[in-house]
Amino acid sequence: MATAEHIENPPAELGEGGVRRRDFLNIAAVSVAAVGGVATLFPLITQMSPSADVLALASIEVDLAGIEPGQAIKTTWRKQPIFVRNLTPQEIAAANATPLADLRDPQTLAERTQEGHGNWLITLAVCTHLGCVPLGAAEGENRGEFGGYFCPCHGSHYDTAGRIRKGPAPLNLEVPEYAFTSDTIVKIG
């Protein structure tokens, strides 16, 4: 706006009298214009946030009935891949046997599952390093040195509880918010 400029160089020939009132008016006009300009930035910035239809898809339901122990499926939530794994007793035992002191991001398996559904490990399938999808959900894929997931992009190894054990990733695979609506239906988000 043109008003944003007009106080920088008050004409030199202005008389002494009334200078303060003049300056005040000009400063006020420019300040109000600046406030308007800043307020305009708000919609310009927020328009890039997720729109209402994207936010509305924030929860999904997954049917667990067909997943045998030892198997995992991939599904999507908020356009991100999700691993849902039915842990075998051996995998649970292996996870529980790991001392917390060995972990980069110490968490027990129990903290990463829900009570009464301790065999269901539900995590985002997004490596916490730089966002690749780790291997290990499908039959025959490389599950890494710790029998969980392995991210081929930069070599991060996750254990059977989806915890980071080796490689560059800083954190365990994230566990989304979810709730069991029945024994075989889980609502994520």
Binding site: M1, A2, T3, E5, H6, I7, E8, N9, P10, P11, N26, A29, A33
Partner: peptide, 15 residues
């Protein structure tokens, strides 16, 4: 008159 501040001020009002 110099464009600024005379016509910048007038344009500010027009804006």
């Amino acid at each position: 008159v110099p464009f600024h501040p005379y016509y910048t001020a007038k344009d500010g009002f027009g804006v």
